[in-house]
Amino acid sequence: MNVRRNSVAAVVVTALASVVTVLMAAVGAANYASYRAHGRGALRVALITEADQLAVGLALPVWNIDRAQIDRVLAAEEAHRSVFAVRLEAAGKSHTRVRDGAWRLVATTSPFPTEGLLEEERDVTFSGEKVGSFKIYATPRFLEEDLSRIFRTIVVSIAAVDVLLVFFLYLLLRRAVLKPLEDIERFATAVSSDEGGPAPAISLSKGAARELASLHSSIEAMVRLLDQRYEAVRASEKKYRDIIDFAPIGVVKARPDGTII
Rank of each mutant, 00 (worst) to 15 (best):
T153D: 11
A160C: 04
R141Q: 15
D146V: 07
E144P: 00
F151S: 02
G132L: 10
E144T: 04
S133H: 06
P140F: 06
R152G: 04
I158D: 04
T125S: 10
K130V: 15
G128Y: 00
G132K: 01
V161M: 10
P140H: 06
T125H: 10
Y137F: 15
S148L: 10
T125A: 15
F134L: 02
R149A: 14
V124E: 01
T125D: 02
I136P: 00
V161C: 11
I150T: 10
I150N: 05
A160Y: 03
F151A: 13
V161I: 15
G128H: 03
Y137S: 06
D162T: 14
A160P: 02
V163K: 03
K135A: 10
T153C: 06
L143T: 10
S127F: 04
A159I: 14
D146C: 01
S148E: 07
L147F: 08
A159W: 04
F151Y: 07
D162M: 13
S127H: 15
K135V: 11
P140T: 11
P140N: 12
A160V: 11
E129V: 04
T125Q: 12
K130L: 08
R149G: 13
F142P: 02
R152V: 13
T139F: 03
V161S: 06
E129N: 13
T153L: 08
Y137D: 05
V163W: 12
A160H: 02
K135E: 07
A138W: 02
E129D: 07
K135C: 07
L143H: 01
V163E: 03
I136N: 02
D146I: 02
A138G: 07
S148P: 03
D162A: 15
G128C: 05
V156R: 07
F134T: 03
A138L: 05
T139H: 02
V163L: 13
L143N: 07
S157H: 07
V131G: 05
I150P: 00
E129W: 06
S127A: 14
G128R: 05
Y137R: 01
K130G: 10
T125L: 12
L143S: 02
S127I: 04
P140L: 07
R152N: 11
K130S: 08
R149M: 10
I136Y: 00
R141L: 15
V163P: 04
V131L: 09
A160R: 00
V124A: 01
K135T: 12
Y137Q: 05
A160T: 14
S127C: 00
S157N: 10
I154W: 01
I154C: 05
S148K: 09
V161W: 03
G132I: 11
F126D: 06
S157T: 11
V131H: 11
S148G: 12
I150E: 08
I150G: 03
F134Y: 08
R141H: 15
S127Y: 02
G132E: 03
S133G: 12
E144A: 04
G128Q: 07
F142Y: 14
I154N: 01
E145W: 06
F126L: 05
V163F: 15
I136G: 00
R152D: 14
A159K: 09
A138E: 10
E145I: 14
T125N: 13
Y137N: 08
E144F: 11
L143M: 12
R141P: 02
V163G: 09
E129A: 05
L147W: 02
E145Y: 08
L147H: 08
R141V: 04
V161G: 03
P140E: 13
R152A: 14
F142D: 15
